[in-house]
Design a protein around this nucleic acid. Structure first.
Length: 493
RNA sequence: GCCCCCAUCGUCUAGUGGCCCAGGACGAAGCCCUCUCAAGGCUUAAACCGGGAUUCGAAUUCCCGUGGGGGCACCA
């Protein structure tokens, strides 16, 4: 069976931090494009100059690349359908606005924002739905032309049919019927000459030959308008897919400032840049967000390539999904365990070096297998494994005292352990573990007491990777040194 | 207020009229393994929003409620 290659696009506005919703939509766009052998495109929707924030566009591009969603066409990579930044496409929109005016689907409007606001207030007072009153809709083309020639500023509005019903088809939701009297004469072209989303997106999707429009369900309200615009141009419609929104963890409402701050406090975020810094992996983030809105029966741990393999727009779900950060942890940890040793080592190294630690690559390669199944986020490697790269450690004195024993008894155990270890020809775990276990046996102590002292002494931590494997990597000299200083600490208690 | 969308375990979901006394995953609980912490293995609890209708038969189709979400800008 041959599938038609799909052209999809992610079209974010550079108005803030790139968030999870954008990432998920981009993922589905990417999956569809790759699945069908088509193209995935980045288009920057920067027509609201006032809200554009510097750096946001770069963050989007960085974010997509970090996630592994390389786009085939975009502002910084070019393509046959550019430019890919809407502010660079002004003339295209003006030209198309003119086409709609000429074919009577749109008209110039000279109403001022003040006047608009006033009529809105009055309508609300009368408990009517706020809507444009149509004052300029009835202007003759000649009048309008004259006023334009006089230099009056104007917008261009879409001439929505007064009666009848607009039926728009969404691939997930079926036909959506809306009474035209519910629809406004929306502004297409603003008085600054730039288009609104409504015009820009429709024109660009057509010009860029987008076959599938995936976007958030917040666009459902103006969906009929968009369909009407496409039809006014006489163009073929793309397949429309309105994705569900993400809800806050409680499931009651969207993520607000409050929840975002709370998430950050718990070590989570809905911003891609933050997630990267918090030690989440692209694999984990993508797998996690893919499954909020895409139903997969079983074997839900997937790489992006595996997702491409299995993806279908028919599997997308229309219902809203509550964000569950625990599940992000799970996917992140699971993917970390799937990485090769070399790969994980390379990803972990920056965390150690950022701490100012001197990373020996051989040591790193050896500790990765010990760390791997203990990491939920990449930065967890610091808590578990930084002692491998330190000259010495400073154990908490109370951690050196074994449960049920006092300092003197613990010191005695440490001294015995020292003798046993010092007597070994090497410090391999095969060599060291048996005699120490024998000592535990004969002393009547339990392993937790003896190994606990050693763990604290040698790793400086209460919790660590397996003790004997760790000692082997640290090396005989350092281990004995650390044990010795632990003994001194114990003797001072 | 008006319009639109959605509705299966706490959460993400499978399910497209009989295979479902509803399957998987996260989380939870218990057990096993165990030098700490994990990982792993096994087990358990946990859902078809309510009411009508269609049908021999409904989680699955249709209506009506209810609940939740989104939208009603010269923002996207």
């Amino acid at each position: 069976m041959s599938i038609k290659p799909a052209r999809t696009r992610i079209a974010p506005s550079p108005t803030g931090h790139m968030h999870l919703g954008t990432a998920r939509t981009a993922l589905y766009d990417y999956l569809l494009a790759k699945k069908t052998g088509g193209q995935f495109i980045l288009r920057i929707e920067d027509t609201d100059i006032k809200r554009t924030v510097p750096g946001a566009e770069q963050e989007i591009m960085d974010g997509l690349r970090w996630l592994g969603l390389e786009y085939d066409e975009g502002p910084d990579v070019g393509g046959a359908y550019g430019p890919y930044r809407q502010t660079e496409r002004r003339e295209i929109y003006q030209h198309h606005a003119k086409i709609l005016i000429d074919n009577k689907s749109a008209y110039p409007c000279f109403c001022t924002p003040d006047k608009l606001e006033k009529t809105r207030q009055e309508q609300m007072k009368r408990k009517e739905n706020p809507h444009y009153d149509g004052a300029c809709r009835v202007l003759t083309p000649e009048d309008a032309a004259k006023r334009i020639a006089n230099g009056e500023t104007y917008t261009v509005r879409f001439k929505t049919p007064k009666e009848g019903v607009t039926i728009a088809h969404d691939h997930l939701r079926g036909d959506i019927a809306t009474e035209n009297n519910q629809l406004n004469d929306y502004v297409l072209l603003k008085s600054d000459g730039l288009p609104t989303y409504h015009l820009a997106a429709i024109v660009d999707d057509h010009e860029m030959q987008i076959t599938h429009v995936l976007r958030g369900s917040e666009w459902l309200g103006t969906f009929p308008l968009h369909v009407n615009i496409v039809r006014a141009f006489g163009w073929e419609e793309p397949i429309w897919i309105h994705l569900s929104v993400f809800l806050k963890p409680s499931g009651k409402g969207k993520m607000s400032k409050r929840e975002t701050a709370q998430a950050m406090k718990d070590g989570y975020s809905i911003f891609i840049k933050d997630m990267q810094e918090l030690g989440f992996t692209p694999e984990g983030v993508m797998n996690w967000s893919a499954l909020m809105g895409w139903g997969v029966a079983e074997d839900d741990v997937m790489t992006i390539d595996q997702m491409v393999e299995r993806f279908s727009i028919d599997g997308l779900t229309p219902s809203p999904a509550a964000i569950n950060f625990q599940k992000l942890d799970h996917f992140n940890a699971t993917h970390i365990r799937l990485f090769t040793t070399e790969d994980l080592a390379a990803r972990l190294k920056p965390y150690f070096t950022c701490e100012g630690l001197n990373v020996n690559d051989n040591v790193l390669l050896k500790i990765v297998p010990l760390l791997r199944e203990r990491l939920v986020t990449l930065d967890d490697c610091l808590a578990f494994g930084s002692f491998f790269f330190r000259e010495d450690v400073t154990p908490n004195p109370e951690d050196l005292v074994a449960k049920g024993l006092d300092a003197a008894q613990s010191a005695e155990i440490a001294r015995r352990a020292y003798q046993i270890l010092a007597a070994q020809p090497d410090i391999s775990h095969e060599r060291c573990e048996p005699p120490l276990r024998a000592y535990v046996e004969e002393s009547g102590l339990n392993v937790n007491q003896v190994f606990g002292i050693l763990r604290a002494a040698i790793t400086g931590q209460k919790v660590s990777p397996p003790l004997f494997e760790s000692m082997e990597i640290i090396g005989r000299e350092k281990c004995l040194q650390r044990l010795e200083s632990a003994i001194r600490i114990l003797e001072k208690i």
